[in-house]
Design a protein around this nucleic acid. Structure first.
Lengths: 277, 277
DNA sequence: TATACTAATGACTAATCGGTCATTTGTCAA
DNA sequence: TTGACAAATGACCGATTAGTCATTAGTATA
């Protein structure tokens, strides 16, 4: 497990320097200080490494956004907090941003493309949720356009973090973009992106969370860990997925137990969606 | 010359399907129906092909934008025309957009990165010029932010053209984005990107047009052509670059002669800048 | 110490890569 | 028909690739 992480981190460095295709497994193992054989003990193929990396790096990003959107109590500051959180992530993980967020264009393998698209759809959902919280029904026919604008702001300004290492005032950037977003939300009258439009585009990639997929996800993360509150919570939660007997409060409690642990926070995120919590 | 174009077009298809590194010279020559040796008669290396392709495809894009920005007489419709022109290009050349515009992130070769960055800087200049025409001094401390927003809108909405083949109403899209741009321009109060900031980022890539670089560019495009008005115009213009004797009107006329021809429109664009026309 | 097991190694393979060059083909004028 | 020249070919090169597997090193148990 730790070996996997080491490989993913060194591979990220190399991919961000040279690109995926131009980086050889040899180079990765050299930077890790391990043998080629050891690499293939952790990952079946080079492609599988890339797929794992997408999960490893994008899940955290999605969870961060979702937390801000769901937890900030003050509507006045939500947009600012949202942007601050986003760009903080860009700054701290500029290498992974370079590799994964900008852009899907060079992701030519369908499986990877679908994965990245699915994560982006998750992000879009969080943004839409935020806009609904902030503006309610007044925005109902332009909210998808506002979402596209927000994603555009992210892409455009992310460049500053990804391609230069200048010191940037996060607070002012967030203020500036929050103001722009608010202006757009309040004044836009001509919509372009409609709800059915979004559903047409997004649907093919959208994987709904079924009992089976969730159980499978849980089993994958079951083994490699010693006894702990987290492990017990996960086991109980798994039983509840198979047959729900506890109250929603208990289930929520179990989920919250898992959330802080990086090894389980994606399971927590998905479980919360599954139980509609 | 025609062989070069054939190779670039087939290579574009393959790069857009598989990416640059994953596409072999073999594959390119097979799709062209030529031998491997013939490829290396046109391009010294695979890298040189990519560099030529950046020029070939991005120059046209830059020229298109600049024409709209400089020639649309009506300020009321300029933003709409600007967006219409941009997205028309995305629609018609979705393959090259996929390869070049989204994103620089996977361009790991410095020479290519600098080239793409330089072309993007040209685009930024056109956008700034447009904003100055439209809003004048009232925008002077937020114009760079508005430019970044415009580029964000482009990146975000371009996705629709690049990753889906749905029929899209260009007119309505342009109207929608023009409205958003206008709203942002009129209401933004908190700037983030300042002039010195832009100069700090852009300068390293900015190549000024010197007499020598322009002459060099002209010489490169001198040979492969039979006698024509265009060729004569180019020769006269070259003399004027070496030693200016004619009036500005005549020089402008010569430049305009070159503009319509795809083989010379980049020279026309650069010459106009050189002579400040 | 002996045994049993897993973790790790790196030489190896078959395939493919970008790039070269002796050779052939095609096209002119003489 | 010939000779001269340019255009095009594809077998070939050394280097590198992803992936394999017989072997070894390390560790825990008995």
């Amino acid at each position: 497990m730790l070996k996997k992480q080491l490989i993913m981190e060194k591979a990220l460095e190399l991919f961000s320097e040279q690109g995926f295709e131009a980086t050889s497994v040899q180079q990765i193992t050299e930077r890790c200080g391990i043998s080629k054989g050891a690499f293939y003990l952790s990952f079946k193929t080079k492609d599988e490494l890339m797929i794992s990396m997408v999960d490893y790096y994008l899940q955290q990003f999605i969870i961060d956004i979702d937390r801000v959107v769901k937890c900030v109590p003050n509507k006045e500051t939500m947009l600012v907090e949202f942007y601050k959180s986003i760009f903080q992530a860009f700054r701290e993980h500029s290498a992974s941003s370079r590799v994964f967020l900008n852009e899907k264009a060079f992701i030519v393998k369908k499986e990877l493309f679908d994965k990245v698209t699915a994560y982006e759809a998750e992000m879009s959902k969080s943004i839409i949720y935020m806009l609904e919280q902030l503006y309610g029904d007044t925005l109902h026919h332009t909210k998808y356009d506002v979402m596209y604008c927000i994603k555009g702001f992210m892409k455009s300004y992310a460049e500053l973090f990804i391609f230069s290492d200048m010191p940037l005032d996060l607070e002012q950037l967030a203020q500036s973009l929050a103001e722009k977003t608010d202006i757009i939300a309040r004044h836009t009258t001509i919509p372009f992106i409609t709800e059915e439009f979004v559903s047409l585009i997004a649907k093919p990639y959208e994987k709904e969370i079924t009992k089976d997929t969730l159980l499978q996800l849980m089993e994958q993360n079951m083994d490699h860990t010693e006894d702990s509150i987290e492990k017990e919570s996960l086991e109980l939660l798994k039983q509840q997925v198979e047959k729900t007997t506890y109250s929603r409060a208990i289930i929520k409690g179990l989920i919250e137990n898992l959330r802080p642990d990086p090894a389980y926070n994606w399971i927590a995120y998905v479980s919360a969606k599954y139980f509609h919590i």
